[in-house]
């Protein structure tokens, strides 16, 4: 009987006394991948590129789980508290390593914070992340180059983790833009040259020079038109393939050469082969890191 009473009390009383958990004022959203662009300042291309990069980095032996979050505003919270809430909620970093890093950017407040997990505090000291904010991210943000700032920030955070001594700069390739520029240059330069040659021929009295120049010009022009034709073809091809890649990646479909018939046709199954569901590893942070504005 007494046991019963005790058991009942034991079960019921804690419920009566139960107090609400320390509530979070801010509603931390669920994550989908390492990059969460709630403020919509990053292009889909960069997001995909960064996600692939960060996912790979998280699996490396001396890697870390880096999460990038942009939000519109802080909703009255301090950036430090909010970063802590995101970190606690998402548990960024591997459980036994606590190797999580969070880059939180609040666009309207013009504030950001790099929040570090316990395990990366040695390489990503507060002064190192403070310097990344001041010297790499903030100058780009001042010019509204959010993409460049985030890209630089991510690269420097990774560089600092892998190689605390020296920071290797990594820039995005510019080949596509260069080819486009070259084509424009050739067309302009080529037509200018033709006008000049025609004027020259009209004045000269020789009858064979026209033929000779015609041959030479024909060869040049053929190569130019050929170059233009191939350039246009290449651009269209690249456009189609990139677009396919992007949409399939967003749908989490396979993007490898073999599985998509050379990049033109998607696989019928929507299940991805490798990274079907992303998840952070259960790491925790003691509140380290640095904040800054721009």
């Amino acid at each position: 009987m007494i046991k019963k009473i005790l058991a009942t009390l034991f079960l019921v009383v804690p419920l009566l006394f139960a107090t609400s958990k320390p509530g979070h004022a801010y509603d931390v959203p669920k994550y989908d991948g390492p990059v969460n662009d709630h403020a919509q300042v990053l292009s889909d291309e960069l997001e995909i590129e960064l996600e692939a990069y960060l996912t790979k980095f998280a699996q490396e032996s001396n890697g870390a789980e880096l999460a990038i979050v942009t939000i519109k505003n802080l909703d009255g919270e301090s950036i430090e508290d909010l970063a802590q809430q995101f970190f606690d909620d998402w548990e960024i970093g591997k459980k036994e390593l606590d190797n999580g890093v969070l880059l939180l950017i609040s666009i309207d407040d013009r504030e950001m914070r790099i929040h570090t997990g316990y395990g990366v505090e040695a390489s990503l000291t507060d002064s190192v992340v403070g310097r990344i904010i001041r010297n790499d991210i903030a100058p780009e943000f001042k010019k509204y180059n959010y993409e460049a700032g985030v890209n630089k920030g991510a690269n420097n955070i990774i560089a600092a983790i892998q190689n605390p001594e020296q920071f290797a700069e990594k820039e995005k390739p510019v080949t596509e833009f260069f080819i486009f520029f070259l084509v424009i240059f050739l067309i302009t330069f080529g037509s200018g040259l033709m006008v000049y040659i025609a004027a020259f021929l009209g004045r000269s009295k020789s009858w064979w020079l026209g033929g000779l120049i015609g041959v030479v010009l024909g060869m040049i022009l053929a190569s130019i038109t050929g170059a233009i034709a191939f350039a246009i073809f290449g651009l269209i091809l690249d456009y189609i393939l990139s677009k396919n890649y992007k949409t399939w990646k967003l749908q989490k479909k396979a993007t490898s050469w073999g599985k998509t018939s050379g990049g033109f046709f998607p696989t019928s199954s929507s299940k991805s082969s490798s990274s079907s569901s992303f998840s952070f590893g259960g790491g925790s942070s003691g509140g380290g890191g640095a904040s800054g504005g721009w």
Binding site: E80, Q84, T125, D126, S127, V129, G130, R131, R134, S285, G286, G287, G288, G289, A290, S291
Partner: peptide, 20 residues
């Protein structure tokens, strides 16, 4: 830079204190 770095460390520690 040295002072800024130290201020970062100090501010970071303040935040760690409040978290813990």
């Amino acid at each position: 830079e040295t002072v800024l770095g130290l201020m970062d460390e100090l501010a970071g520690t303040e935040n760690r204190v409040s978290v813990e």
